[in-house]
Design a protein around this nucleic acid. Structure first.
Length: 883
RNA sequence: GGGCGGGUAGCUCAGUUGGGAGAGCACCGGCCUUACAAGCCGGGGGUCACAGGUUCGAGCCCUGUUCCGCCUACCA
């Protein structure tokens, strides 16, 4: 006989089954298998990453779907892998070097990249092990890395093709520059934060010495790169200065006054200093007016020689400080205003980003965005919840070219070579030996690498072997669903759609499930600096992985952020224990069990048996439907309620009386106990893989693992509405008795005699047939039913629909207590009746409401009235008892 | 500036076609009833942010107000 401990201990169990699944290779998807495929690619975590609660959430949801689909018989692939995370990883290794008193420049590019690989092989990807701990059924055999040879080949193929089609170009533009990381960033990689700054008003004198203009700026240090002042041609105030020149203070450079309708006459003074090398709008202005561009900063954010000898070498913010002092001293600074404005920061290191003119590579986005929008518009791709589609369209419609070059060393080096002889740029799939224009061998490869998101954009097909025509690609592309947070909707999802359509001619996935962000109990975003992070690994240690997973699923209602509170996790840990102990009970009653767990319909199934089977069937339907629609919380809650509130609270209690007998009823109960437990475990398995496997393996069955067993399916014919109704009656009586017991403060151990008066012969029969249940669960000695029952004077009673529940309490009646109870009930009824009467006497309602609604209310009114009458009579006798 | 999401029990949140609101935790009372005290039984608790509107009927649909959160934007 199988015995379980009194408490479920997750630690050892999780380790054991985690290993078992992998040894058995159950996570592997076979591309040669013909059964219908279901595929998901993991959002590749950074190799620098450690599992945080967001990962845990994201991957739990994917695993739920993967395990569910696998059990449904789909050839299920969940593709694992990691992202090389260019800037983040480079930062990590540079920090190490710094600690050693070295830096990457000292090491040189080749040695540095080698060092990063070494780091990655040794300590990169700790998250892989953590995902395994979480129970993720990823096909580890297929693990990919964005810097792998195959994926690098895909990157080159895509880059070169786009270049050949003119969709990749190189040029001088203002980009977002991080002076700390010393690289360009895409628009998306800049985080805008509101900051309290200053608006400096500066006086620029006219060259002819007659008067001056006041301009306003938030970044005074950029004035050193000014090459014009602009006003709006319609601005009356400045008409008279047309065609004049000004003198740039401090540097005494002559700059023209230009006119452009871009200038907002209502902001500041209506006069705008123009710095084409340090502001995107000024850059455009400069282009329109053929202005000189003067870049006054070094890549590290210090001022260069063009800023003048006074400022050269100073950091941009030091420069600002000194310059403002100097401007004040020389009378140029007219006034300083406070101004709150938004300032861009590097998303990797939080340094204030500098708009910076430099030569970069770009992807032309518009032509790629058009089909990507269409795919969502026509429903080829479904975004769930749907409201994210709006966000997607809005961004796509205003999409700008994507800056893809990064001035770092860790990443895919751009496959472009500059000919040192003739200046030709050679872009090629294979490293060229000679210049395509002049045949010189003097080629130097572009030093920049590609944005990490460039390779991520290819993930759904590059991981499957593209550009080779592999069977995996054939089998698993397009993938079925993508599960991710909204924070990377543009970074990643949109770009995958663009690239997938461009290079595969087909969308990369059908369903995109966008989940919410996990916050702390106060709704704050979790962050290390705030110290409010919940570490999933600690939670798993403390409460068990299954409890964490279930909590996350139960919280995953669509469209709302998740405030994670620890007591919820504890609650679901208790659920594990509940399930464990229910199973313990089942095993304790199997010592003589010989049958198979297959359900023989011809067995003498009791009412309770048939009831729980019917309920199981309903739960099964709901779970499948909920998962189909990615309503994880509904699915989780359905299983939870079924197991706890139906199987445990009622069915197990009901079987106890059957199990004490020997004979067919005991065997039937055993069969049903096992069958329902088995099915419930399967329903729960996607959410709680470990505990379900542990219990399931002990059940009599001959399959290898619950994770490859068949997921329950709804069977119409298993639904038994009649028996559910019967059980409802029984449960109603039991609850009614318990209620009286509780409210009358009767000892729970006290056996009671109970009378149920009802004129409905069917109900009478039900109660008589199921009397043993009522006796056992409500602690009843004698149960008498009939139409002509005389109510003893000293008794408590309540009205349950068509039944009068009467409990004689001679010698132990607390009349006052009973009176309170009845009056409370009557009060409620009166309130309801007033409401119903009002409603039903409203001619509009009777005239316009659907017949079934009126019917329902009429019935309610009738039964309430009857109940009222009965209770009033009862109350009268109670009052006599008091007197 | 524009857009989106949200305000439901003390707390965290469900509520899928509009027909008088649910869960978990917390709280109160009673139980070691031979699976489970991480449990069992019973109970109290809500002008569904506010104000209008549509409707016989609104937590749900429409308008406005307000508070919170997020995304987005080149006003120097």
């Amino acid at each position: 006989m199988i015995q379980l401990d009194k408490q479920y201990e997750p630690g050892e169990v999780e380790k054991r089954w985690g290993q078992f699944w992998q040894e058995k290779n159950f996570f592997h998807a076979d591309e040669t298998k013909e059964s219908p495929a279901y595929s998901i690619v993991i959002p590749p975590p950074n190799i620098t990453g450690r599992l945080h609660i967001g990962h845990a959430f994201n991957n739990t949801l994917q695993d739920i779907i993967a395990r569910w689909k696998r059990m449904q018989g789909y050839n299920t692939l969940w593709q694992p892998g990691m992202d090389h995370a260019g800037i983040a990883t480079q930062n990590v290794v540079e920090k190490q070097l710094h600690a050693e008193g070295s830096n990457r420049q000292e090491l040189g590019r080749e040695a540095f990249v080698e060092r990063v690989w070494k780091w990655r092989n040794e300590s990169g990807g700790t998250i892989t092990g953590q995902l395994k701990k979480l129970g993720c059924s990823l096909d580890w055999e297929r693990e990919r890395f964005t810097m792998d040879e195959g994926l690098s080949k895909a990157v080159r193929e895509v880059f070169v093709t786009l270049y050949e089609e003119g969709l990749v170009y190189k040029g001088d533009y203002i980009i977002n520059w991080c002076p700390r990381c010393q690289t360009a960033l895409s628009d998306l990689e800049v985080e805008h934060k509101d900051a309290q700054g200053h608006l400096y008003h500066l006086k620029y004198p006219f060259k002819d010495g007659e008067g001056s203009l006041i301009i306003a700026t938030t970044r005074p240090e950029t004035m050193l790169g000014d090459t014009a002042v602009a006003v709006n041609p319609d601005d009356e105030r400045y008409q008279k200065y047309k065609g004049k020149s000004l003198v740039l203070p401090m540097l005494n450079r002559e700059i023209p006054l230009i006119e452009d309708r871009y200038v907002d006459t209502s902001f500041g003074t209506g006069a705008l200093k123009v710095t084409p090398a340090h502001d995107p709008n000024d850059f455009e202005l400069g282009r329109r007016h053929q202005l000189e561009t003067i870049n006054v900063m070094n890549p590290d954010g210090t001022m260069n020689s063009l800023a003048g000898s006074e400022y050269e070498g100073l950091d941009r913010f030091e420069c600002r400080k000194k310059l403002v002092e100097d401007l004040k001293d020389s009378g140029v600074l007219v006034k300083v205003e406070d101004l709150s404005h938004s300032v861009g920061h590097c998303y990797r290191c939080r340094t204030v980003v500098e708009p910076y003119l430099s030569k970069q590579w770009f992807v032309k986005a518009k032509p790629l965005a058009e089909p990507a929008m269409k795919a969502v518009r026509d429903g080829t791709i479904k975004i769930i919840p749907k409201f994210w589609e709006n966000t997607y369209f809005e961004w796509m419609e205003n999409i700008r070219d994507w800056c893809i070059s990064r001035q770092i060393w860790w990443g895919h080096q751009i496959p472009a070579w500059n000919c040192q002889s003739c200046g030709e740029v050679v872009v090629a799939r294979k490293t060229p030996k000679t210049c395509s224009a002049c045949s010189s061998a003097d080629l130097v490869q572009e030093t920049d690498v590609l944005d990490t998101w460039f390779s991520s954009a290819l993930w759904p097909f590059s991981t499957l072997g593209w550009p080779e025509k592999t069977q995996s690609l054939e089998r698993f592309y397009p993938t079925s669903m993508l599960c991710t947070g909204f924070d990377i909707l543009f970074f990643w999802v949109a770009r995958m759609i663009m690239m997938g359509l461009k290079f595969m001619g087909e969308v990369p996935f059908r369903d995109v499930y966008i989940h919410a962000l996990i916050r702390d109990a106060e709704g704050q975003k979790m962050s290390k600096t705030k110290g409010n992070v919940i570490d999933p690994l600690e939670v798993m240690e403390q409460y068990g992985t299954d409890a964490l997973r279930f909590t996350l699923a139960a919280f995953a209602a669509q469209g709302r952020d998740i405030k994670l509170a620890e007591d919820r996790i504890e609650g679901y840990r208790n659920f594990c224990n509940k399930l464990w102990n229910a199973s313990r009970f089942v095993f304790m009653n199997l010592e003589d069990y010989k049958g198979s767990c297959a359900l023989d319909e011809k067995n003498n199934l009791s009412t309770a048996d048939r009831w729980i089977l019917s309920r199981l069937n309903r739960a099964t339907k709901e779970v499948n439907e909920a998962l189909e629609a990615f309503r994880f919380n509904d699915a989780a809650l359905t299983v939870y309620k079924f197991i706890w509130n139906e199987y445990c609270d009622w069915y197990i209690e009901l079987t106890k009386s059957k199990l004490t007998d020997s004979g067919p009823e005991r065997v039937a109960a055993q069969n049903v106990l096992i069958h329902v437990l088995n099915s419930a475990l399967k329903l729960l398995h996607p959410f709680m893989p470990f505990i379900t496997e542990e219990i399931w393996q002990k059940l009599p069955q001959d399959e290898d693992s619950i994770m490859v067993s068949k997921f329950p399916e709804f069977q119409e014919e298993r639904t038994d509405a009649a028996v559910e109704k019967e059980m409802d009656t029984v449960m109603e009586v039991i609850t009614g008795i318990r209620n009286i017991r509780g409210e009358m403060n009767l000892n729970p151990g006290l056996k009671l005699n109970v009378l149920v008066k009802t004129s409905n012969p069917k109900t009478q029969k039900t109660l008589q047939d199921q009397a043993s249940y009522i006796r056992k669960l409500a602690r009843v000695e004698q149960l008498q039913t009939g139409a002509e029952i005389e109510k003893p004077k000293v008794s408590a009673s309540s009205v349950l629909g068509e039944m009068d529940l009467i409990i004689p309490l001679e010698g132990m009646m607390d009349f006052q207590e009973e009176r309170n109870r009845i009056e409370k009930e009557l009060k409620k009824i009166q309130k309801d009746l007033i409401f119903l009467n009002k409603k039903l006497s409203n001619p509009d309602f009777v005239e316009k409401a659907p017949a079934e609604v009126i019917e329902k209310d009429e019935q309610r009114k009738t039964s309430l009235s009857e109940k009222q009458v009965k209770l009033e009579i009862h109350l009268k006798t109670i009052k006599q008892g008091i007197d």
